[in-house]
C-alpha cells in the first residue's frame, strides 16, 4: 500500500517537471529545422540541385569555420514582420556556433513577397547591414522580381558564403587544399569531448537528484505521512521547479542574433 503511494507521488513530481519544461512563449509557431538543417523549403520554391549545393557548401564551410548559413522559405509569416520572424527563427534554430555566433539566416517568404538576411552577432563585422543590403539589391531582388527564386537564392547564398570566407581567410578556389589555419575539426573535436564530459556530469547530477528525492520520500512517508512532499508539490505547482527538457539534436550550434542584417520586398 505504502509502496503504491510512493510510486504515484514520484510520478506526480515527474509529470510536474515535464509540464513545466514545455512552456511555450506565445502564439508564434516556429517550424522545426529540416533534417539537413541548412535548407528548409516549406514554400517549395527551390530545386533539389540548389538545395544540395547549399547543404554541401555549408558542410565544408562548417567544418572549417563553424559558421552556418541557413536558407529557409516559409509559407506564412503569421502576421509578424519579417524582421521579428527571422530573429525568432534564428534564435530558435540556434544558427552558428555558440562561442562565435557566426550564423546567417536567409529567410524568404514568397507569399508576402518579403525576404531577409539576418546576421548573427559574430558576423556583423564581416557583413554590416549596408553589405547585406547590397547583396539583397544586387544579387537577390532582381531575380526574385522576375519570379526566379532559384537563381536569386543561389546568388544571394553564394555572395554570403564569399563574405564569410573572406572573414575567415579562406580562398574560395582552393577548397580542397587544406593549407590554411582552419583544419577541419581542429577546433571542434576538443570542444565536443568537453561537452561530452559536461553531459556526463549532467546525467550524474540528475541521477543523484533522483536518488535524493527517493530517499527523501521514504523518510518523509515513514515519519511524517508525506506532509513535506505535499508541501513541496504545492510549491512546485506554482512554478518553482524548472527542469530543462532534453536537448535538440537537430538545431544549430547555439548561435544567436540581435537583429542585424537587411530585409526587403519585391
Amino acid at each position: 500500500m505504502k509502496n503504491k503511494i510512493k510510486f504515484s507521488l514520484i510520478w506526480i513530481i515527474v509529470l510536474i517537471c515535464i509540464t513545466n519544461s514545455y512552456v511555450i512563449a506565445d502564439d508564434l509557431n516556429l517550424p522545426q529545422p529540416s533534417r539537413e538543417f541548412y535548407v528548409y523549403d516549406e514554400a517549395n520554391i527551390l530545386d533539389e540541385t540548389v538545395e544540395n549545393y547549399i547543404v554541401e557548401t555549408n558542410e565544408s564551410l562548417h567544418s572549417k569555420t563553424g559558421a552556418q548559413i541557413v536558407v529557409a522559405t516559409v509559407n506564412s509569416l503569421q502576421n509578424r514582420s519579417i524582421e521579428e520572424y527571422a530573429n525568432r527563427l534564428f534564435r530558435y534554430w540556434e544558427i552558428g556556433s555558440k562561442e562565435k555566433n557566426n550564423g546567417i539566416l536567409f529567410l524568404i517568404a514568397p507569399t508576402e513577397n518579403k525576404m531577409r538576411i539576418e546576421i548573427g552577432y559574430g558576423l556583423e563585422g564581416a557583413i554590416p547591414d549596408g553589405k547585406a543590403g547590397e547583396i539583397r539589391d544586387k544579387m537577390i531582388i532582381p531575380y526574385f522580381k522576375k519570379g526566379n527564386y532559384n537563381k536569386g537564392t543561389l546568388e544571394g547564398f553564394k555572395a554570403l558564403v564569399k563574405e564569410v570566407k573572406i572573414e575567415y581567410n579562406i580562398d574560395s578556389n582552393s577548397n580542397e587544399h587544406k593549407r590554411f589555419i582552419f583544419e577541419p575539426n581542429n577546433e571542434h573535436s576538443p570542444q565536443k569531448s568537453k561537452e561530452g564530459i559536461a553531459n556526463l556530469f549532467d546525467s550524474v547530477k540528475k541521477i543523484i537528484i533522483i536518488i535524493g528525492i527517493i530517499i527523501f520520500l521514504i523518510i518523509d512517508f515513514t515519519f511524517f505521512d508525506g506532509f513535506l512532499t505535499f508541501t513541496f508539490i504545492r510549491i512546485a505547482s506554482r512554478g518553482g521547479f524548472n527542469f530543462n527538457g532534453g536537448g535538440n539534436d537537430n538545431h544549430g550550434g547555439g548561435g544567436s542574433s540581435g537583429g542585424g542584417g537587411a530585409s526587403g520586398g519585391w
Binding site: P128, D129, A132, G260, A262, S263
Partner: peptide, 8 residues
C-alpha cells in the same frame, strides 16, 4: 540600410 538595421 544601416539605420534600418539599427532600428531593428
Amino acid at each position: 540600410d544601416e539605420l534600418a538595421g539599427t532600428e531593428n
